[in-house]
Amino acid sequence: MTTVADPKAPRPPRAKPSRLTTRGNTELYGWVFMRASGVILLVLIFGHLFVNLVAGEGVKAIDFGFVAGKWASPFWQVWDLLMLWLAMIHGTNGVRTIVNDYAERPGTRLVLKSLLYLAFVITVVLGTLVIFTFDPCPSGSPADLLPSFCTAS
């Protein structure tokens, strides 16, 4: 005869609590990141908008020479790089939350999130490359389109 489990034996330990969407504290870190990055982005973006829209001639002054003038300085390169990364992570994580809220079918979620992550990778890689490989004085370009320091020496 097969034996049944001893009724007085201690109950086997429960399986570890499992969460539906993530393991560990990933969502908590995301929550903290949204707040920390938000504070930094406020400074970075307000500074960006002030310099590009309000100071000097405003939007009218933006052209290749303007961008070259800014990116000739490591200060604005680092500024824009930080802004790019933080805004993209913050924005992608925010949109991910919204997809989770409204897209209920697993297939729809998968498609939307794949598109979202693809857009993230393309934008961050492209933006980073542009900042680091930028040449303010490309040879063969008309001098009147370039910043003045290109012809100085």
Partner: peptide, 30 residues
Amino acid sequence: TGVAIFFFLLVHVLDTSLVRISPEAYNDVI
């Protein structure tokens, strides 16, 4: 507003990247 800014940013990085093509390309689009 969060979603709107996100989509703006995707386009914004794309148009800024024209500075790597040529000064003319960037100035034309801007």
